[in-house]
Amino acid sequence: MQEAYSKEEFESKLRDMGRMYHIHHPFHIRMYEGTCTKEEIQGWVANRFYYQCMIPIKDAAIMSNCPSLVDRRKWIDRITDHDSVGGGIEAWLELGEAVGLNKEDLVSHKFLLPSVKFAVDAYVNFARQRPWKEAAMSSLTEMFAPQIHQQRLSTWPDNYPWIEQKGLRYFQKRLSEARRDVQHGLAITLEEFNTRELQEKAFSILQFKLDILWTICDALYLAYELKRPPYFNCEK
């Protein structure tokens, strides 16, 4: 049996998986380079809204499987961050309006791509069905999130001046929230995944979440950049 990594080694290896974060997907690269079209930005915002809506449902599923009062009290902040008045979902609706989308179209998920829905639903089902510590550590892609939020705040005003600045509130609020959430999720992971076998499982779980995010970008790339949305070659 292989010896477990030290907590420092384990954390370093987890963070190194950021090289596969969707910030490196060609769709995201074009987004921060300023070469995305208005339609592509709108498509990303509309599809990502489904992910935003399902985040508090995912977190509620994790809480429902968690027997620890202390951890539930910490985890509930994630639900409040998104579901409260002025929270993440409302902030994303502001972003939608800022890029020229109709609020009713966003709420109805009118532009939701099937691949995006399947990917997000797979993540929620994972959170419902797996032990809460495994589901909790799948959220550790938050280690890489502040960089992508800051990237949007730094590049969008110059690259996409047609986007109303008030729509960027979501990215601003997530800078601090994501860093706070990482502290809790990482502490659980480093403490509980304490054998080499469990650590290898942790790597596979984090890879699963990275796969979810990358798959969402693949769907957007196919539909909006290559102009091949679902059934594009079929008669309707």
Rank of each mutant, 00 (worst) to 15 (best):
D181N: 13
N102F: 11
Y160F: 05
F126P: 15
Q199W: 04
R130T: 13
L186G: 01
M54G: 02
V99D: 05
W214Q: 06
E104R: 08
Q172K: 07
K74T: 06
D16Y: 09
G87L: 09
F111C: 06
C217I: 02
K236M: 07
I79P: 08
K227E: 13
M137H: 03
D158N: 07
L113N: 07
T189M: 14
E200D: 14
E191R: 13
T35D: 00
A135L: 07
R180K: 10
T37L: 05
E134V: 12
S139W: 10
I29L: 13
R78F: 15
A127M: 09
K173I: 08
S204A: 11
E192P: 03
T141G: 07
G88N: 11
I205P: 04
N125K: 14
L95I: 04
C66H: 12
S115V: 11
E9Y: 03
L93G: 09
G185F: 09
D16C: 12
S12I: 00
Q165N: 09
S12K: 13
W214D: 07
F193N: 03
G100S: 14
I29Y: 09
L198A: 06
A145W: 05
E235N: 09
F208P: 08
S64E: 12
I188F: 02
Q129G: 14
Q129H: 12
H28E: 08
L226T: 00
E9I: 03
F208S: 05
A219F: 00
N65H: 14
F171Q: 03
M17N: 06
I29R: 15
Y224P: 00
D105V: 10
K38T: 10
G88Y: 07
M54F: 01
T155A: 07
R180C: 00
Y231E: 02
F126D: 11
C234P: 02
E104A: 15
Y21F: 15
S204I: 01
L186Y: 04
L222D: 04
K236S: 06
